[in-house]
Structures are given as structure tokens and as C-alpha cells.
């Protein structure tokens, strides 16, 4: 399994060094993803989803330290020398950003930005790179692509910008695509179009995708597997079916019950009491314990380890077994 994985992440940790002390925005994330698989990282705002993706690309500012392993095609991205790292970024490992307006350079045309990437990675002439850029814009269904190639980001609509961003990310045929809330900034009808486009491209190109969202519905729709993130830790990972039907971690349950999709229809929506902890002042034990109905003394004082329930299925909760028993 480990050898054929497209991405294999071990113990990924991202620390921000700050005057008030270090802060772990991602703490020991471990997962692996097969070729063509889609995994969603689900979690509330500030739980460390974006930092996880950026850390996987080694993209954090220099006051952050990243430890652990991120193996893509057998090579550890985090230990690559700068030139090889640059080759891998945008090559086999590529990223779509949440806000395309902020992530695209405002003073270069879309065509220039795509062609630049292709030239950098494949060393072909600028003119033929521009031809490829045109084909890519057509592939992501941007109308009158030849004209749009010469557009600056501010001359496009939000949905079109995100399509252009996707074209940019796919320019050099990545095997792994990281998508950081690619639809959050868009309105609902456009969101669905972009999701459909992403799924279509993923299947066509056989990419592995790590998709970040805080929308349970989107996660259920698009992914094969789900990782639930809370306060910098993966508290539960498993297949969509398992997690949607039998969530084991109390936080996953709360998350599902607070959405129309998860809560059984006709039942009242529940909310999780309290609010997520600040990453710089985490409780000593389980980070979720202050909000958890099942929390006992052990939860408040010790950090629960990962319990491996099956391949790719883990949970970090002392009460997971009882929860499982309940579910059966």
C-alpha cells in the first residue's frame, strides 16, 4: 500500500515561532492517498487546513518550521534541494487557492501566467507554451478562450478566475492536486459548476486530490475519504461512507449533526457548544474536551493517541470504541 501511494504524509507538523511561544498549527498529520483518490480535509475556520496544504508544499514563511515527511512518488518533498523543490511545485504537486483574485498576479495576463509556468517546467518555447495555455483555458470551459488569454485577472468574473486558476494548476499535469477551498469565494451556482469541473478533470487525469472545505455537503459530494481536522490535529480519518454514516469522534458527530445533510432529515439541527480553542492556548488533554459531552478526567489531562481501526481509518478519542459499539 505504502509503495503505490501517490502521497504519503507522515507526522507532518508546522510550528510558527512567535514571541509568545511556538504554536503548532498542524500537529502530526499522517495519511496516505492512492492514485486517483480524493480526500477532503474538513474542519472549522482556523483548524489548520490551509497550513496543512502549504506545509505539504514547503510554502510557509521562514519563521515557521515544518517537520515530518511528505512523500510524493517516493520522494520526500520537504527534503528536496531548492531546484528540485521548485521543479516539484507546479510539476507533480500543484495547488489551487481559495481566493483566485489574491493568488493571481494582477499585472500579468492569464496567458502570461500560465505560459510562464509551462516554460519553467518544460523548457518549451514561449509561443508553444501560449498555445498550451489556450488549450488549457478551453479545457476548463472558459468561453472565447483566445480573448481571455489576454485578460488580466481583474477583467474576469470570480468563476472565470477560478477556472483560470485551475487551468494554471493543471498546466504541467500534476499527479497530486491540493485544492484549498476552491469554491468558498464563489456564489452557489458557480460553486457547483467548479466542483463538477474539478471532479471531471480529476477523473480524466487520474489525479489524487486533497480538497479542503468546511462544507460537509461538498465533502460528501466530491471525496472518497475524509479527514476531520480539529485544532491542528486530524481527529478522525476514514471513507466518506464510514464517516457520514458512523462518525466515531464526538467532534465529527457534532459537525455532521450541525448540517442538514448529516442530521437525519426531520430532526433538529444541533450545534456544537462552545467555540474552537485558540491554537496558542490549547488545553492539556484532548483539544475538544472542553466542548465534549463525553469528556472525563482522562480526556482533560491526557492527549489521546491515534487508534488505528483499519487501513486509512483512525480516530483520536478515548471513547471511540464505546462509540463504535453504540453504532453497531
Amino acid at each position: 500500500m505504502a509503495t503505490e501511494a501517490a502521497v504519503d504524509v507522515r507526522n507532518l507538523t508546522a510550528m510558527f515561532r512567535r514571541r509568545e511561544g511556538d504554536m503548532a498549527a498542524v500537529n502530526g498529520a499522517t495519511f496516505s492517498l492512492a492514485r486517483g483518490e480524493v480526500m477532503t480535509i474538513l474542519g472549522e475556520s482556523g483548524s489548520g487546513k490551509s497550513v496543512t496544504l502549504k506545509a505539504m508544499m514547503g510554502l510557509l514563511p521562514d519563521y515557521a518550521s515544518i517537520t515530518g515527511e511528505v512523500r510524493v512518488a517516493g520522494r520526500d518533498i520537504l527534503k528536496l534541494p531548492p531546484a528540485a523543490l521548485a521543479k516539484a511545485r507546479g510539476g507533480e504537486l500543484s495547488m489551487i487557492f481559495q481566493e483566485p483574485m489574491a493568488a493571481l498576479d494582477p499585472v500579468y495576463t492569464i496567458g502570461e501566467q500560465i505560459a510562464e509556468t509551462i516554460v519553467k517546467h518544460e523548457g518549451i518555447t514561449y509561443a508553444s507554451a501560449m498555445q498550451r495555455a489556450l488549450a488549457l483555458l478551453e479545457r476548463v470551459a472558459i468561453p472565447s478562450a483566445a480573448r481571455r488569454l489576454k485578460n488580466y485577472p481583474h477583467e474576469m468574473s470570480g468563476g472565470m478566475r477560478q477556472r483560470a486558476m485551475i487551468a494554471l494548476a493543471l498546466a504541467c499535469n500534476p499527479t497530486v492536486l491540493l485544492a484549498d477551498e476552491p469554491t468558498t469565494a464563489l456564489d452557489v451556482t458557480v460553486q457547483i459548476q467548479i466542483l463538477l469541473l474539478l471532479r471531471e478533470l480529476q477523473q480524466e487525469l487520474g489525479m489524487s486530490v486533497i480538497f479542503v472545505t468546511h462544507d460537509v455537503g461538498v465533502a460528501a459530494e466530491i471525496s472518497d475519504r475524509i479527514a476531520v481536522m480539529y485544532a491542528g490535529r486530524f481527529v478522525e480519518t476514514g471513507t466518506v461512507r464510514e464517516i457520514m454514516r458512523h462518525p466515531k469522534h464526538p467532534y465529527s458527530k457534532g459537525l455532521l449533526n450541525s448540517t442538514v445533510l448529516g442530521g437525519l432529515r426531520g430532526r433538529r439541527l444541533e450545534t456544537i457548544p462552545g467555540s474552537p480553542p485558540s491554537l496558542s492556548a490549547l488545553p492539556r488533554g484532548c483539544a475538544f474536551s472542553p466542548r465534549c459531552a463525553q469528556a472525563d478526567v482522562r480526556c482533560l489531562t491526557t492527549q489521546p493517541d491515534e487508534t488505528v481501526l483499519g487501513p486509512g481509518t483512525i480516530v483520536r478519542c478515548f471513547h471511540a470504541n464505546t462509540a463504535m459499539a453504540e453504532a453497531i
Binding site: L59, P82, R89, M95, A103, A169
Partner: peptide, 16 residues
């Protein structure tokens, strides 16, 4: 801003 990070994410090195 975000775009210099995005430029690094698409594989550009320091000078570009």
C-alpha cells in the same frame, strides 16, 4: 499578499 506564495507554489524560483 498571497500571490508571491502562489508563484512559488507553481514552481518559480527566487529571481522570477
Amino acid at each position: 499578499r498571497e500571490f508571491p506564495g502562489a508563484l512559488a507554489a507553481k514552481g518559480l524560483t527566487r529571481w522570477p
